[in-house]
Amino acid sequence: MTAPLTERAARRAEGDEPAVRLDGVSKIYGQGKNGLLALDNISLSVAPGEFVSLLGASGCGKSTLLSLVAGLDSPTAGTLSVGGRKIAMMFQEPALFPWLTVSANVEMALRVQGVAKRERRQRAAEFLDIVHLGGFGAKRPHELSGGMRQRVSLARALAQEADVLLMDEPFGALDAMTRDLLHDELERIWQKRGLSVLFVTHNVREAVRLGDRVVLLSSRPGKVAEEFDVDIERPRVTDSPEVAELASAVTARLRQEVLRHGS
């Protein structure tokens, strides 16, 4: 079952080579009888500059998919290509280095590239400004709130200046208001930099609010259940009726997926 091809999807189909392409990718954890099929024959691509939201029930393999794309793990079957692009990733938890200050954490992204110390500091400050944490560079991660840590993590991912940004429920632990603010920020940065984004979330509205396309994964094993094109004018607002309408359609489909497992 596929969604009706919209104009943009058609353009995408004949457009450039995708930034991220998964072809029949499967992932089995463990071996033999005890093996767990986490992802089953996933085919998915993200066009350059496209924002794709990935939705699915807990445990359906979203994080697994991102680690494969990030090269942290390799697929059991199928091919995966990112065309040599540079990849940044924001993990489900902030994953900051506790022994470094906030600024030094962001600088770690630049350190690998051999950027000189002074320039590193200056650029880290710029990225912290982007996530509105300009005054917090000298603090340690544990002195910040959970939401602020997530933002530091975002700043660090942005500092990598990668072409592809993978985000694993980055705003899951935030209050609604902060989340709205960060949606606007993320959208702005994504548009300005022309990033390709693969964004994992549990929140249907968030997926619709941000994505050019929403990909729904089914559970056990993880498969692409359906794709929705989001043809809503940007800038979008989470509480707008258009977003709510599509979100309820996606939710209905998601519920169907979950029910299929219940029976």
């Binding site: 990030a70 942290l72 940044a88 993990f91 938890e93 994953a95 350190r111 690998v112």
Partner: peptide, 23 residues
């Protein structure tokens, strides 16, 4: 999780050891 984050950031081998594992 720190090892995974460092991998994505591009730290490998000696650099990984020096900047992540030792601290």
């Amino acid at each position: 999780i720190l090892l995974r984050a460092s991998h994505v950031l591009g730290f490998r081998r000696l650099q990984l050891y020096r900047h992540v594992i030792l601290p």
